[in-house]
Computed example of a mutant assay.
Amino acid sequence: MKKQLYTLTLLLAFGSCMAQTKFWKPAVNPSEVQKTYLGWNNYQKSHIMLSTDFVALDAKSNPITKAAFLQELTSGNYIPVALESDKAALYYQLFKIEPTSDTSIKASIAETAFNEIQNYKKEGEPFPAFSFHDLEGNLITNETLKGKIVVIKCWYIHCAACLKEFPEVNQLVANYKDRTDIFFISLAEDTPEQLAPFLVRKPLSYAVVPDMKTYMNLTLQLNAFPTHYIINKEGIIVKVLSDSHSLEVALKKESLIEK
Rank of each mutant, 00 (worst) to 15 (best):
T36S: 04
E193P: 07
Q221H: 08
K66A: 08
T112I: 15
V208K: 04
L8N: 10
A56D: 04
D134K: 02
I237H: 08
I64R: 07
M49T: 07
M216F: 05
K153I: 05
P80D: 10
I117N: 14
D58Q: 14
P128A: 09
C154K: 04
L50V: 07
I149L: 03
Y215E: 08
V249Y: 05
P203I: 00
K25L: 12
K148D: 00
Y92I: 07
N41Q: 09
L220T: 07
L247P: 01
A89C: 05
P210S: 03
V151P: 00
A19S: 12
T52N: 06
A56K: 04
L5F: 10
T112D: 15
A67I: 12
C17S: 14
K259Q: 02
A82R: 06
E258L: 02
S61K: 14
T100Q: 13
T180K: 03
V55P: 12
A88M: 08
Y120E: 12
S131Y: 09
F130K: 02
D86Q: 11
Y92H: 07
E168V: 00
Y91W: 14
T9Y: 15
K35R: 11
Q4S: 11
P99N: 05
S31L: 15
I105N: 09
W24M: 14
S104A: 15
L199M: 00
L139R: 12
A19I: 14
H158T: 06
H133A: 06
T65K: 13
I231H: 03
